[in-house]
Design a protein around this nucleic acid. Structure first.
Lengths: 143, 143
DNA sequence: CCGGCTTTCTTGAACGAGTCAAGTCTTGCT
DNA sequence: AGCAAGACTTGACTCGTTCAAGAAAGCCGG
C-alpha cells in the first residue's frame, strides 16, 4: 500500500488529501489510459459514494498540477495516465480504440523543432500513432 | 469558378455530385480548420436550406474518401481542411484554440519509425504542437 | 428523355461527455 | 476544538454528434 506516495504527490502539488483523490489515483494506476467513465467505475469499487462530478473535478485538478496526463485521441473521450514527464507517446487502434504507450522514437523531444510556426510559440509536441492492435489485426471483422 | 475541380474530385471518389457537397467543399476551402458549426454556417450563406445532418454526412463521406482531412485537437470539436496528402501537422493555441498548419519539420514522415509498438501495426503518425498564438501572446489576459 | 434504383438529404428525436451552480461536508491550520 | 478555504454531492443543463424514417435528388440503362 503506497498510498503514502500518492499522499505526498498530492501535498507537493498543494492539493488536499481526500479519499476520492486517492481512489482516483489508484484507479488510474490500475487502469492506464482509462476514460473518465472507467475511472469512475473503478473508483466506485472502493468508494461507492463518489459522484461523477467529483471524478471530473479530481481528474481536472490532477491534470492541472501535472500529476496525471490527459490524452484525447480523436473520436475518444478523455483518457488519463499516471506516467508523466517522460515524453512518451501513444498508439491508438483504429478499430477498437485501444491505447498503448510508445517510447519516443527519437529519444529527445520529437519534431519539437517545428519550422515555420506562424507566430506561435510552441511548448509541446504531441505525437499520436494510428494503426491496428494485435487483437483487431487477427480478428478482422469483429462486431 | 473551379467547381468543376470539386466535381471531378467527387466523381473520382465515387460520390455523387450534389449542391450540398459542392457547398461544403467550397466552405472548407474558404475556412481551413473550421469546425462543423462554422462549415454549416458558411454553407448556408450559399445554400440556406442545407440541414446540419447533411453537413455531418458530407464531411463524414469526404473524410472517408480522403478528400478532406479531419483533425480533432483535445478540447475542440472536429475541424476540417482540404489540404491532404502532404503530411503536414498542426499547431494549436492553448488559449484561443486557433489552429495553423506546420510543415513537417523532418520532411519525411516524422517519428513514424516508432520502436516497440506493442503488437500494433502503425500506419500514420500525427503530430500536434501546442503553444500560444501571436495574438494571445500579445494580449495575455483576454476575454 | 424517362423510369427506376440507389444514394443522399430533411426532419426531428436522442445520446453521451462534459460543465454549471448551489449548498453541504472535510481538511488542514490554529 | 473551531474556523475558513477547499472539495464533494446533487441535479439540471449544454453542446457536439449520432440515430432513424421518410422524401428527394443523382445517375444509369433503355
Amino acid at each position: 500500500m503506497d498510498d503514502s506516495e500518492f499522499e505526498h504527490l498530492l501535498r507537493s502539488a498543494d492539493l488536499r488529501v481526500t479519499r476520492p483523490r486517492l481512489a482516483v489515483l489508484r484507479a488510474v494506476r490500475r487502469h492506464p489510459h482509462a476514460d473518465t467513465g472507467s475511472v469512475l467505475a473503478a473508483v466506485r469499487v472502493e468508494e461507492p459514494n463518489v459522484s461523477h462530478q467529483a471524478v471530473y473535478d479530481v481528474l481536472g485538478a490532477l491534470t492541472d498540477s501535472g500529476l496525471v496526463r490527459r490524452i484525447q485521441p480523436a473520436g475518444s473521450a478523455a483518457r488519463y495516465e499516471l506516467r508523466v514527464g517522460d515524453n512518451h507517446h501513444h498508439v491508438v487502434c483504429r478499430s477498437c480504440g485501444r491505447v498503448a504507450d510508445v517510447d519516443c522514437a527519437v529519444g529527445h523531444r520529437p519534431c519539437l523543432t517545428a519550422s515555420a510556426a506562424d507566430g506561435f510559440v510552441i511548448d509541446e509536441a504531441e505525437v499520436t500513432y494510428w494503426g491496428t492492435c494485435a487483437e483487431c489485426a487477427s480478428a478482422p471483422a469483429a462486431t
